[in-house]
């Protein structure tokens, strides 16, 4: 049986708001360092150790009305990591357009998640599986 741990979905949205703010800051400053820090945060989040979510846990609040599977947000953090790494390389090597495009894509996903509850894994995971597993089925 797969290990299914559950998390407070509000904490995940909270983390997405902070991520959006940080990425907005990156777009304004073109800072490779700031984006590299966010990349580390994405890497931690992808393995279930998001510092933003940890911050949420320290805020006094009512218990969550429902819990969510932790795997979808972890998947999204992994995708965010890929974009943040590409963006950091872009800004660090003065290919600002690459940095901006990658950061803008990550910001769009984070902002959609924060403001609308958008689930990246729902939209792209199956599409990716459909494309990569072509011809495997009989």
């Amino acid at each position: 049986m797969i290990d299914r741990s559950y998390i407070d979905p509000r904490g995940q949205r909270f983390a997405a708001w902070i991520t959006s703010a940080v990425l907005a800051g990156v777009l304004l400053t073109h800072s490779a360092t700031l984006l590299a820090v966010q990349a580390v945060v994405f890497a931690l989040g992808a393995t279930g150790r998001s510092p933003y979510a940890a911050l949420w846990k320290r805020i006094p609040k009512s218990p969550p009305s429902e819990l969510e599977d932790k795997r979808p947000p972890q998947f999204a953090q992994g995708v965010g990591l890929a974009f943040a790494v590409v963006g950091t390389i872009g800004y660090a090597t003065s290919v600002t357009t690459l940095g901006t495009v990658a950061t803008a894509a990550a910001l769009a996903a984070a902002f959609l998640n924060a403001a609308f509850g958008f689930c990246l894994g729902c939209e792209i995971y199956l599409l990716a599986k459909r494309t990569t597993n072509k011809g495997v089925t009989a």
């Binding site: 400053t29 073109h30 901006t100 803008a104 769009a108 902002f111 959609l112 403001a115 609308f116 509850g117």
Partner: peptide
């Protein structure tokens, strides 16, 4: 100039994303 350039990109991304979010929802 850099911050201003970034500002327009940021506003553009947020506007497009907000519209996309409403349609998506």
């Amino acid at each position: 100039a850099s911050v201003q350039g970034g500002m327009w990109v940021l506003l553009g991304v947020l506007t497009v994303t907000a519209v996309a979010g409403v349609v998506w929802r």
